[in-house]
Design a protein around this nucleic acid. Structure first.
Lengths: 146, 146
DNA sequence: CTAAAAGTTCAAGCTAACTTGAGGTCAATG
DNA sequence: CATTGACCTCAAGTTAGCTTGAACTTTTAG
């Protein structure tokens, strides 16, 4: 078992395309050493980072946000289980929030679109107290009534 | 209370930029009549469609998908509460699915990243049975172990 | 030893969902 | 009646998260 892996080995094990891996490296989410030839050599533990990245993406975090989190890992040693646990705690909260958000949404959908009213005076559906994670630009905020 | 509204009136009431409204019309999600001048005149009920669009976007549907749903509304009359209710039922299910998905994710996160293992032999976190909605391209599937 | 496979960089392309800008018309107000 | 703001179209730009292609080098297998 070699101590470092080539980009293709990492790609196969992670299911992430090499082009994406290069992109992640460029963005500073992962890093590699170089062989004399200039080829990348990834330490085994980047796979853990990649796992985290993949996970984070599944619920909508941007690479920027993920990088911010990963940057909190210690750099003086390869992150241990405990190091990861610290990150994970925060993330459990985020997942919880998302779930709660969706549950509120679901409730309102049932009560509000369900009855076909969609009135914004009686229904706060489109003025949610907390904002939903949004990819696109621009506000989604209803003003006045329909 | 006029029967039709200008693009700016719609924009103010919906919080959606006029440029976006034009874009939605171009994509066929909403439609308008035109004044003699060529200016758009929106019937009041497009606000209901816009509410639906906004709602759908909050949990990650694409405009394409949203259009497909909206196209199911009757065209022979302005959609009634019952018409909307038909759509809404399907959507409640989707929200439920998302919640369930997140709950599974949360559980695995706690058990798996929590302990710092991230081992893919013992943990199916990155091979979820059902796929998550994904914006980006490429598969997120872990093969072999870390 | 040679050919194919794998690696490199850098620039350009892609998709979604819009926004911005140019260049021009229309409508409301003092 | 002039000016300001609202509106129009159409083309091009924007952001995220990659992918693709060109042009070239290194490694590996036969």
């Amino acid at each position: 078992m070699e101590t470092t892996l080539t980009i293709n080995q990492i790609s196969r094990r992670s299911g992430i395309a090499s082009s994406a891996l290069r992109y992640y490296e460029e963005r500073g989410l992962i890093s590699s050493e170089r062989a004399g030839s200039g080829h990348r050599r990834f330490p085994r533990h980047v796979l853990r980072r990649l796992a985290f990245i993949s996970f984070a993406q599944t619920f909508g975090m941007t690479l920027e946000e993920i990088k911010t989190e990963l940057d909190k890992l210690p750099t003086d040693h390869v992150p241990t289980g405990d190091d990861w646990a610290v990150l994970s705690e925060k993330w459990t909260h985020r997942v919880d929030e998302q779930i709660a958000q969706l549950q509120r949404l679901r409730k309102t959908l049932t009560a509000c679109i369900g009855c076909g009213c969609l009135s914004l005076k009686s229904c706060k559906m489109f003025n949610p107290e907390d904002e939903l994670r949004q990819r696109g630009t621009g506000p989604r905020k209803w003003i006045e009534d329909i």
